[in-house]
Design a protein around this nucleic acid. Sequence first.
DNA 1: GATCGCGTATACAACGTTGTAATCATCGCC
DNA 2: GGCGATGATTACAACGTTGTATACGCGATC
Lengths: 346, 346
Amino acid sequence: MAATLRDVARLAEVSIKTVSNVIHDHPNVRDETRARVQSAIEELDYQPNMSARGLRSGRTGAIGLAIPSIRENYFAELADAVIEAADLHGVSVLVSQTNGLREAELDVLSGRRLRLTDGLLFSPASLGQDDRDLLNVRFPLVLLGERMFDGPTDHVTMLNIEAATAAVEHLISRGRRRIALLGVDAERLDEAGSANLRAAGYQLALQQAGIAYDPALVVGPAHWDHDDAAEATRALIRSGAPFDAVFAMNDTLAVGALRALAEARFRVPEDIAIIGFDDIEATRFSIPSLSSVDPGRSQIARLAVERLLHRIEEKNDRQPPQRFTTDFTIVARESTDHPAERSVDG
Amino acid sequence: MAATLRDVARLAEVSIKTVSNVIHDHPNVRDETRARVQSAIEELDYQPNMSARGLRSGRTGAIGLAIPSIRENYFAELADAVIEAADLHGVSVLVSQTNGLREAELDVLSGRRLRLTDGLLFSPASLGQDDRDLLNVRFPLVLLGERMFDGPTDHVTMLNIEAATAAVEHLISRGRRRIALLGVDAERLDEAGSANLRAAGYQLALQQAGIAYDPALVVGPAHWDHDDAAEATRALIRSGAPFDAVFAMNDTLAVGALRALAEARFRVPEDIAIIGFDDIEATRFSIPSLSSVDPGRSQIARLAVERLLHRIEEKNDRQPPQRFTTDFTIVARESTDHPAERSVDG
DNA sequence: GATCGCGTATACAACGTTGTAATCATCGCC
DNA sequence: GGCGATGATTACAACGTTGTATACGCGATC
């Protein structure tokens, strides 16, 4: 069985409290005593029982990360950044997948799902603006993503509109005028979420450049996966509406579009330029490599973790909820004919 | 504050033990009492304190998953499968990343890193056969992957040699004879790990087909990432050694190779056929889509989780360590000129 | 030389839960 | 109608830890 404070105390011939004091680097422990305890700890390979500590202190030292699916590259990279950030604070991360199911997201908020944690980072995919009240939970919660705003909790989000505008401006700066928007139905532009905001940024950029908005260039799918993206792009091509660029609302969509364009023998970027969103790793290894918007993912993770830990520390003097936004960057690669990237390998 | 058994007991006018009995569906609770307790539980939204339960029972209800990096698609998909499998048993998953660092892997085994868990699923990347003794830890441990064999713990692994042989046979069946092996230095063929085994499978397939083994076709990199794979492929092309197929030891390497081949204006599969390994999602969305070996990932996850939970339950009557292997399948796609996949989208 | 102060160490209680053993109520049986 | 058997409920202890309060020893102080 694992050694306990008692065992260490017995071996070092001190009280268990003294052992505890040594472990916590309390002052007022004689050097000689400290050394004796230390060596007893090592001899027994004592490791504190986290359940007992958690019971006593009310802290488990773990936080929950609830995301739609860890398989989605964006979330895998986010989880990576969250785990790294949590590590720096000696905190573990429990991952829960909702698969974007409303039922699962409700479970997460009820606390039924992640019961070992001090707090939760939550990136909803089904819950929306109308569900804001559900965020009034009694554990510390930091919201991620773009589906709910002005809720009762801290919120870390990217600058979707601004970043989308910059992405479209990037295409315009490459001389493109007929820019398709991939990732949302033209009829559903008013719903919540990243899609809506990025579409707004798209429209804003067009407007500022004096380019007319053409609903024929705005195509689904609502679900952002490769297959649907390829299919939507094929439909766009079949429709006959001329276009010379695609702004894909995320990189997965962009990869799907790339595939459909290749099938139809379009050249990228010569015939069609593409830019995606999220800057996942895959953008660097597609053929051609994909320009994208880096939303500052590690910054999001760091901010979110720090904010959550802060809320966990915080006693009764609760501060009002705050919103944080991160910096974005346009990463130009081959798909928008970026010369530097082009010549990388000669 | 969160409600405790005491609060519920007080409200329902019973003892805390009765509440506990209701929660655990013990027999010998009168229906009327049960109902009263139930409604008190609901009224207070009582949720058991997992730290206290863990302290009392010695179980936390969480397991650890230690992998090199969640960003790697293979591990993201593995983590997904593990979390799903654990969910079915009401168990949570703590994810820890080692980044393939020996130091981090030692930490994992010391128990210092994941301290809230009942057991561990461990996929090492640095530790090797010589470190087998380190697997003698005092918590339940199930080993994943191909770096250590015949250790003191249960081990779930894929049939690397057989699967690699089948992959190469698949290329041979497509009429290829000059098959490059991507993912290991010709000089380091004797080291541990998947590379070694897959290389053995490669050699076996060649031998069985009466094809001479040519070390010039066996190229690095030792680190399996896109960049290095592309670079190694470029080097192979520059070397002038003729080849008509590539067996990449994983899909990430295959994607990198695809890129290098495209740059050099080779056509895939017409000039060069490629098959990868792991069957990650990206294989379906590269251009052309990548043939691969499906190693039965969800089966691995399910087996590993079940085995670990079994070991956690198990009292003193410890069974000897067991090894489990999963079924693999060759998934033929465009990169080895598979007709069915070719015509998918007309 | 009694008192104070300080550094060091300890005893005890409590966190919320559950297993064990004990108590109390109820019923059937001779 | 007393007795044992069974069902329902409870008291108590313990899991391992840490905060609070307390005790002890020692040198400095008046």
